[in-house]
């Protein structure tokens, strides 16, 4: 095993994998959605019917969660790259988490029509 130094942080492999896995999930969802859009009758009715299906809602919500995790890793990397003062960086991390959790709550409302 590689001699790993204790640096008080994770090494980031898990995040790296999460970012790739969620990317693949979103690509598959997008491809499926495009196929449906091309195949189904165009217009409001077909679109509403599609998103009325429980399994479409489930897959949409799952993909949105993948999106939020993906955005979390990406934006967190951004702060780690550019923001050096620890206090400012932790504040940006926190604001990013608040933003993404809020988006998640909003997406619950929209997808499930709560």
């Amino acid at each position: 095993m590689v001699n790993r130094q204790v640096v008080g942080a994770h090494y980031g492999l898990k995040d790296w994998i999460v970012q790739r896995a969620t990317a693949v999930i979103m690509l598959v969802y997008t491809a499926a959605l495009i196929l449906f859009l091309l195949a189904m009758p165009s217009g409001y009715e077909g679109w509403k019917l599609l998103f009325g299906q429980t399994w479409v809602k489930v897959l949409t919500q799952t993909t949105l969660i993948a999106l939020f995790l993906h955005a979390w890793v990406g934006i967190r990397d951004l702060w780690m790259d550019y923001i050096k003062p620890v206090g400012v960086r932790l504040t940006m991390h926190t604001l990013t988490a608040v933003w993404l959790v809020s988006c998640f709550i909003y997406s619950l409302k929209v997808v499930w029509g709560l």
Binding site: W47, K48, F51, A71, G74, I75, L78, W99, L100, S102, C103, Y106, S107, K109, V110, V111, G113
Partner: peptide, 23 residues
């Protein structure tokens, strides 16, 4: 890739609103 990712991140509420409007 990075810049477009940031733009999409800040547009998330708008994009969810677009889905909500369409439904």
């Amino acid at each position: 890739h990075r810049i477009s990712g940031v733009a999409l991140f800040f547009s998330l509420p708008l994009l969810i609103y677009l889905l909500s409007g369409s439904l």
